[in-house]
Design a protein around this nucleic acid. Structure first.
Lengths: 120, 120
DNA sequence: TTTGTTAATCGTATATTTGCGATGAACTAT
DNA sequence: ATAGTTCATCGCAAATATACGATTAACAAA
């Protein structure tokens, strides 16, 4: 197969891998916390007075639109929730999903690693 | 500011945000497990006979080069380790880093969420 | 030496993420 | 009505991630 051939178009995926629901959910949660600024936001929301608004823009030196974008990513992951309180919006941790994530990651990393081979 | 202006070059970042070491490490671990196929690989390595090699290629319907790429990502994260055993390579969980990740995520999600506001 | 096996790496195409400024929407206050 | 505040969204640029086939490297076996 020749990529330089005129008109060649690479297929994105040849075989579609089927993932379990748990794999998909864990991956999406992990993706949500895969950026240091989102970890910082989550820590602020979890440790400070629980609820927060856009003061984040004052604490974190990033453009307002960028912060908003990260908040949206966290919202989509379900780890946080937002309450409209015009003209402000108050964000806080979504406790139910937070606990789900806790047990999910806990169960994942808590795997029994008893080794039956000679790796160190 | 006009993006169409001839010769315009956007700056990637205006203000450099400083992250703590823990934020960086957590984000990189999270990024490593932010893809379902990497979660599957980790689960296989953690649950099966601990050590594995390229049989992964037979179990997971993806190109060998793609699997190798994902293994490299996991290696870089420190969550797994590889032992060259020509012509094969045996991969397994890096126990020390695995436990570190366990306590790191555990501590993160175990935050006290006592709420001092009226969010639900 | 030649052949075969295994896995990493290269080169490419495409998709997604990340960041910014500008703008718009929703609401308050004047 | 007008002006101000707050935040989401749009449009763009650049970087990174993801997937593949082809090739290479390293070694064992013949």
């Amino acid at each position: 197969m020749n990529y330089k051939k005129k008109g060649f178009v690479m297929k994105r995926t040849l075989s579609m891998v089927e993932y379990s629901g748990e794999e998909e959910v864990m991956a999406s949660i992990a993706k949500a916390i895969s950026h240091p600024v989102r970890i910082r936001i989550l820590k602020l929301l979890a440790s400070q007075q629980c609820c927060f608004t856009g003061e984040l823009t004052e604490i974190i030196p990033m453009a307002q639109s960028t912060i908003s974008q990260h908040l949206k990513a966290l919202l989509d992951s379900g780890l946080i929730q937002g309450e409209i309180n015009p003209p402000k919006v108050r964000y806080c941790i979504n406790r139910a999903n937070w606990l789900k994530a806790y047990s999910m990651f806990g169960g994942f990393f808590n795997a029994d690693l008893t080794c039956r081979c000679d790796c160190r």
